[in-house]
Simulated assay, not measured.
Amino acid sequence: MSSSILTAVAAAICVFLVMPTLAVAPISFTETDFITFPPRGFTLRWYEEFFTRPAWIGSLGTSAIVAVLTAILATTLGTMIALGLGQLPRRVGGAVTFFFILPMVVPTIITAAALYTPFARSGLIASIPGLVLAHTVLALPFVIINVSAILQKLDHRVVDAARSLGATPAVAFRRVTLPILAPGIAAGAVFAFITSFDEVVVSLFIAGANATTLPVQMWSGIRFEISPIVAAASCLLLIVSCVLLTIFWLIQRR
């Protein structure tokens, strides 16, 4: 009975958290020129405007480019860091791991404010490289945690066996270690992409006229026009996140 009650409470909480997000979907089809709920009528006008307005489609392209580059950089660095942490003594490794996952603990606004001054001095404000580096700081913990979780289950005797059969360290890593770590690396890459694609706070500090991401464009749309096109953009973000999380689920099952 207690298990059933706990499941019901958890389900109710999930529904409560998801309902506001699901309410955005019908608003994106409203015929009115402003956000209203319940929506009035049905039209695909706002999706059409999203894909035809240069500001919106340009910000979508910027977000996609930044998210892909962030996923590549964060996955590469995070995997290397996780492998290095696995070689450290337990206490030292725990302290260093905590340092790398601080961006998950510290409020994002503090991270954004801390990054702004060095980025401004380095000329990285309002640039795609600046956004990629800033988002990588936020995405690294997800890669490190996922790869480290797989590393803890890695049977090092398999690697030793490969070495004893004549494999060089590079070949043993490529043929044995890397395939075992692949699910954690893939999961970290998915979370890194989603983290970058949805990030708004750090992007508000780093982005500019030459590098406006979709969440920043949505923030501006909410502040200045309250158009249903923002709801359409939100639905597209939700679809991207759901697709990527589905891919992550399929990777986990495999």
Rank of each mutant, 00 (worst) to 15 (best):
T70S: 06
S203G: 08
A10L: 11
V202P: 00
F50R: 02
M104C: 06
S196C: 01
Q152T: 15
W249L: 15
F98K: 10
A162K: 09
A23Y: 12
G58S: 05
P179N: 01
L237M: 12
P183R: 08
L6Q: 14
A161P: 05
F100M: 07
V92N: 02
I101S: 04
Q252N: 14
L69T: 03
F16M: 10
S122Y: 02
Q252R: 14
M80G: 07
F50G: 00
G184R: 10
F173Q: 04
I110P: 00
W56P: 00
C14S: 14
A192M: 04
Q252E: 15
A82C: 05
T111S: 11
W249Q: 15
I185P: 00
P141L: 05
V68Y: 09
D33N: 12
F99A: 11
I251Q: 09
I185D: 00
S148Q: 09
A8S: 13
A211S: 10
L250K: 13
I194S: 11
S4V: 15
R174S: 14
V200L: 10
V105A: 03
E225T: 14
D160Y: 13
F205S: 00
V143Y: 05
S234F: 10
A170Q: 12
L140S: 01
V68L: 13
T111W: 07
I13D: 03
I239V: 14
T43G: 12
T168H: 13
T212S: 13
T79Y: 00
P39G: 09
L204F: 11
A25K: 06
A120L: 10
R174A: 14
I229F: 07
A112D: 08
P38K: 07
S148N: 07
R254Y: 10
A8K: 09
R253I: 10
T36I: 14
V190D: 00
I27E: 05
S63N: 10
V68A: 12
V201I: 10
D160E: 15
T108W: 01
I229G: 04
T75L: 08
W219V: 04
G93F: 03
P169N: 02
L83G: 06
I5R: 14
S2Q: 15
T111K: 11
L88I: 04
T177F: 03
I125D: 00
A170G: 12
L214I: 09
A189R: 08
E31G: 11
Q152V: 15
T32D: 09
F191G: 02
T246L: 15
W249T: 13
P118V: 03
Q217N: 15
F34Q: 10
E225D: 12
